[in-house]
Simulated assay, not measured.
Amino acid sequence: MPSRAPRACGLCGGVHAHGERCPKAEARHKERKALSDKKRPSAKARGYTAEWARESKRFLAVFSSCRRCGAPATLVDHIKPHKGDKALFWDRRNWQPLCTSCHSGAKQSQERLSSKGA
């Protein structure tokens, strides 16, 4: 099966095979991520406490299938991002069961796209 042609990199000026990431781009990505992680409050500061762990476990005992794909749900997701709003955080109508794959993939992509448009 033919592969795609290599591409010229606008960052380093080198040529990279399709799917290969430029080492400079990779380093830049890691720096941005590290900086973003430093600015982000801890999980506890965002409300994910022992109480949340208890309540989400109870929720998953009742709603055990992923809302998106039907696989076994592994975590409770906030349908509308709470962004620190405690009332919205604890509103069970704003909770949905998701598998890790759906939460980490499609849901996060959807949130990133909607935050860019806002």
Rank of each mutant, 00 (worst) to 15 (best):
D37C: 05
D37E: 14
K38R: 15
K39L: 12
K39E: 12
R40Q: 13
R40C: 08
R40N: 11
R40A: 13
R40V: 06
R40S: 12
P41V: 05
S42L: 07
S42Y: 08
S42W: 11
K44L: 08
K44E: 12
A45L: 09
A45V: 09
G47C: 07
G47S: 10
G47W: 05
T49H: 04
T49E: 02
T49R: 07
T49K: 04
T49W: 01
A50P: 01
E51Q: 14
E51A: 12
W52P: 00
A53D: 12
R54L: 12
E55L: 14
E55D: 13
E55I: 00
E55S: 06
S56G: 03
K57R: 15
K57D: 15
K57A: 15
R58N: 15
R58A: 15
R58Y: 09
R58L: 15
F59R: 03
F59H: 11
F59A: 06
F59P: 04
L60P: 08
L60N: 11
L60S: 11
A61G: 13
A61V: 04
A61H: 06
A61Y: 01
V62L: 14
S64C: 13
S64E: 13
S65N: 12
S65I: 03
C66E: 01
C66F: 03
R67G: 08
R67S: 11
R67I: 01
R67H: 11
R68S: 08
R68Q: 07
R68A: 07
R68D: 12
C69A: 10
C69L: 10
G70T: 05
G70C: 01
G70D: 02
A71L: 04
A71Q: 12
A71C: 07
A71G: 03
A71V: 00
A71T: 02
P72L: 01
P72N: 03
P72S: 05
A73Y: 00
T74E: 15
T74K: 09
L75W: 00
V76Y: 04
D77M: 01
D77H: 14
D77V: 00
D77K: 00
H78K: 11
H78T: 08
I79V: 15
K80G: 01
K80N: 09
P81W: 04
P81N: 12
P81I: 10
H82D: 13
H82C: 10
G84T: 14
G84E: 15
G84H: 14
K86D: 11
K86I: 08
K86N: 03
A87Q: 13
A87E: 15
L88K: 11
L88G: 04
L88I: 05
F89I: 02
F89Y: 06
F89M: 06
F89E: 06
W90L: 07
W90N: 09
W90A: 05
D91Y: 01
D91M: 02
D91E: 11
R92Q: 14
R92K: 15
R92T: 10
R92S: 02
R93Q: 10
R93S: 12
N94V: 07
N94E: 09
W95R: 10
W95A: 07
W95Q: 07
